[in-house]
Design a binder for these strands. Structure first.
Lengths: 147, 147
DNA sequence: TATTGTTATACTCTATAACTATA
DNA sequence: TATAGTTATAGAGTATAACAATA
């Protein structure tokens, strides 16, 4: 039996509080929303930023490689890359006849610097909520969780 | 200067590898997709499950309280709760004239048991990828990150 | 006037299937 | 035949604004 709530203003009991997947999701949504807000003035969305940074670190890479590395399906890469090209951040060259070699434009490299500073600030804002103990190995643990 | 890639089959360099928000997002998406697959046979989606479990632990709670606790906007709660009622898992009673008191049906309680067992299995599957050291305090760290 | 639920609508990210062109 | 990119479409979750009914 589950007893009905003794109503007043008591907060609800959260049975998912100890669930890894649930807490992961809540934090992820929070950080993504925060990132989206921070990125808006730069004219970029989170997914676009991940592509921009990856191309910046791998000039000449193919579109499919980018998607595979980021976990973005080929079909979804099309509009994302097209958007970055349209905004003048990315350039596309023939690599193979059926594949594109992607690289950043000068404008794209400049924007990448701004994005990295923005990411540094966001990282700092969130990491300040953790003590050193909790911070150590957190990212490594997340990477491990991806198996 | 960024040197072009020496093409062969070398994996790309990932400049987001050390970013907390990025790794959080990747793991979250992975676990959500996995959860979605596991839940499909039960006729539930992840968001519905969070509502179902919360109501199960707080019989008589109002719809708005549920949304607030879970971070789901009032507007989005409407269809989610309506779906759970339609499936016969949740019952709605007048509480206030303008607010609904939600509770589980017998069918909803039975389904909750299955869901919890399913979540236990998922948790175990992912936690097996971590050593004890990394596991300790991980959920606590995530909760802290939500400020 | 503030709260609760509701409707309508849009955006972001993800997923699948089928198509084209090239290797 | 297999690969790279593309198109079309759908789904899940989230967001905002405006409205009705009630407190």
């Amino acid at each position: 039996m589950r007893k009905p709530r003794s109503n007043g203003a008591a907060p609800l009991v959260d049975p998912m509080a100890a669930r890894l997947g649930y807490q992961l999701r809540r934090v992820s949504v929070l950080m993504m929303a925060d990132l989206g807000t921070r990125l808006a003035p730069l004219g970029l969305r989170p997914a676009e930023v991940s592509i921009l940074l990856l191309i910046g670190a791998n000039a000449g890479c193919r579109q499919g490689e980018v998607g595979e590395t980021l976990g973005i399906k080929r079909a979804n890469m099309v509009a994302l890359v097209a958007g970055l090209i349209k905004k003048g951040f990315v350039a596309r060259a023939r690599a193979d006849g059926r594949s594109h070699a992607l690289s950043l434009t000068a404008k794209g490299r400049a924007r990448t610097l701004l994005v990295n500073r923005l990411l540094d600030r966001q990282e700092a804002a969130f990491q300040s909520r953790l003590d050193r103990k909790a911070l150590t190995g957190l990212v490594a643990a997340l990477v491990s969780l991806r198996g």
